[in-house]
Amino acid sequence: MVTAAKEKTVACNDLDPALLVRAYRVMLLARATEDKLASLYRAGMIKGGVFLGKGQEALSTASSIFLKKGDIFGPLIRDQAGRLAFGDTVLDTFRTYLGSAKGPMRGRDGNIHRGRPREGYYAMISHLGALVPVVAGGLYARRLRGETGVVGVTSIGDGGTSTGAFHEGVNLAAVERLPLVVVIANNQYAYSTPNSRQFACADLLDKAAGYGIAGFKCDGTDPFASLETLQLAVQAAREGRGPQMVVATLLRLVGHGEHDDAGYVDAALRQANVGRDCLEVGATQLIESDVATADDIAVWTKEAQAEVEDALNIAQREKGPDPAEEDWQAISTERLADGHHDLEDE
């Protein structure tokens, strides 16, 4: 049942060059967006935390780029790239970080806690693993309605695999044989906690066999390998072969959040294959496989940076929410609102 995909570091013939270009440009856009977020944070222009996915852009892009309209994507902390590939915008990213009332969360939630659930883009809560059964539930409802060929992808890290919610969610999805792809980014640390203090199995992929679902393994620093692996996994789910687990190995190239200097990361890991920057790997792959030139990549990089500047200019001019205009209602059925606030507008 468990099939480990071959780890590849060279160009894959099965992938459409146009897709490779699109994926790489998403990665560039995510990196440019996050670089800007980091500088905004350092300048004190963002309230609250900034949580980046530097080093995980290849895997994250691959997670959602094979999804179609009508599919479900439940991204997590380090999925700026996957969010963009699924249809989120740089503008909505800045709106949410800056608290614009025009953003999808309207200032009621911030940073990575954003989504547009009606469009299949679910908004994570902070509790790791909690999104797994929710995406499973979305797929369950689609199946009840008679829809076929729908796929849901959700992602998690090595730390999140230790939660009860992850276990319950994956097991339930397996029992229900739902078309769920769970992408595990093993970035070696959960905040500061290394793999050795997180799990005792030889390989996280061993968990797939335990749940009775298919498993894939890939080098998350390798864009082509990540794309190839996710293409297989999403296709298998779409064809009705039940949940698929993907375990990718990589290294978070930033702190847990921008407040964290990641001084706990083993220097040897940074020098090892796992510490490669997937954007550099991807550039080499595109050039060596004649999909793009170094000049192309330079142009795309500039275009990504320009798109980021434009979006930021818009978001920075937008107002935040006005407390006096808020309805302060947590339920939608007005007649059932308890309506008891000790704080009233004076």
Binding site: P133, V135, A136, G137, Y140, A141, E168, G169, L172
Partner: peptide, 20 residues
């Protein structure tokens, strides 16, 4: 359902998002 209260409620939330 399996003996998974967290996943049972989580499934319900996801299903509700999709209109169930």
């Amino acid at each position: 359902a399996p003996l998974s209260e967290d996943a049972i409620v989580g499934l319900a939330v996801g299903a509700a998002i999709e209109g169930a």
